[in-house]
């Protein structure tokens, strides 16, 4: 198999491993773009991390 094809297959495998499948609630910290992080917890909180930190400091 040519090296470039092998790399593509490996990348595709890793893409499916890291970015697909069922997300178990309470387990995910998700990055969007290169700026924001979302925290997904127990199907209750879906919020910007900055906002969560602000609220938690009150």
């Amino acid at each position: 198999m040519p090296e470039q094809t092998e790399e593509l297959v490996l990348l595709e495998m890793l893409d499916h491993l890291l970015d697909r499948g069922v997300v178990i609630a309470g387990e995910a910290v998700i990055s969007i773009g290169d700026v924001d992080l979302l925290y997904l917890g127990l199907n209750i909180v879906l919020a910007n991390v900055d906002a969560v930190m602000r609220v938690s400091k009150r």
Binding site: H16, L17, L18, D19, R20, G21, V22, V23, I24, E27, A28
Partner: peptide
Amino acid sequence: FVAIRYGFT
């Protein structure tokens, strides 16, 4: 099987 997103421990 049902795939579970990587990182669940």
